[in-house]
Design a protein around this nucleic acid. Structure first.
Length: 252
DNA sequence: AACATCAGCAACCGCCCCCGA
DNA sequence: CTCGGGGGCGGTTGCTGATGT
């Protein structure tokens, strides 16, 4: 007897998302929000499972996502929190604004787990502080409280000038960031302080497909204007590079 | 240059929790 | 109080690009 499947397995598409699907989902969520993920794909015209849409949005398309390498501080935070609370990736993600649980999970399995194995007792200097905060969070009941109790430390964290290179700094997404010796978090915060939901709402404000087409044509012009047409794989790469390079956008 | 192996990451799966009827 | 549905979470898989031989 299990529960009914979340969607018609036969009629949903699986596997990697196409740019078009991304656009459709982003446009729909930006305009209408996501009151019900289950019916969203049908309403948006996507042949995807609602769960798949939610995952794609939360892990990739959400505008407040911080992409790129993890700073050393972020990695240390992950290791400390993992030591304290274990594999509660969502709770850990709550402490790292812009990072998703999936991303943190991946970083843990690919980098940090090995590091902890090699050096099981790296730095206990802050352990008592974390333990105290964890205890507080337990009393208050949720991982989100961790975020609240650490808002001040998060503020100071955001002010870190030039994080030490970390093991993930040599991963595949480093080319553009390393050119400027900066990490994503610094650059996004400095160059795009107002990149929030409103920004994306404005970008995707066209409801009709015609307007959307116009938008993407504009993106194409933007890419050409920046000399990106030869090496950009897709729009997301384009935006990523725009953010990390911190270039001024040409007039559209 | 071609093939094999490895590493990183996006995405899927299934279970659990929460909330409303 | 119970049950069902939706959302969230953690584990796992499999594809792809990078690196080594």
């Amino acid at each position: 007897m299990g529960r009914a499947p979340c969607c018609e397995k036969t009629s949903v598409k699986k596997g990697p998302w196409s740019h078009q699907e991304d656009r459709i989902l982003m446009d729909y969520v930006t305009l209408h929000g996501h009151p019900n993920w289950r019916v969203l794909p049908k309403l948006a015209g996507l042949m995807r499972c609602g769960k798949s849409c939610r995952l794609r949005w939360t892990n990739y398309l959400r505008p407040d996502i911080k992409r790129g390498n993890f700073s050393k501080e972020e990695e240390e935070t992950i290791m400390q929190l993992h030591k304290e609370i274990g594999n509660r990736w969502s709770a850990i993600a709550a402490r790292l604004p812009g990072r998703t649980d999936n991303e943190i999970k991946n970083v843990w399995h690919t980098h940090l787990k090995k590091r902890v194995k090699q050096n099981p007792n790296p730095n206990d200097a802050n352990t008592s502080e974390f333990q105290q905060k964890t205890e507080e969070s337990k009393e208050q009941g949720a991982g989100l409280s961790l975020l609240e109790t650490n808002s001040s430390s998060q503020a100071s964290y955001n002010q870190i000038d030039s994080p030490q290179p970390s093991c993930t700094d040599v991963s595949s997404m480093t080319t553009s960031t390393n050119d400027h010796n900066l990490c994503m978090d610094d650059m996004v915060l400095e160059n795009f302080p107002e990149m929030d939901d409103e920004f994306w709402s404005e970008v995707f404000s066209g409801e009709s497909s015609g307007e959307l087409t116009g938008f993407h044509e504009s993106i194409g012009q933007l890419q050409s204007g920046c000399g990106y047409e030869s090496n950009m794989h897709d729009d997301m790469d384009f935006w990523f590079n725009m953010f990390t390079r911190g270039e001024e956008l040409p007039q559209m």
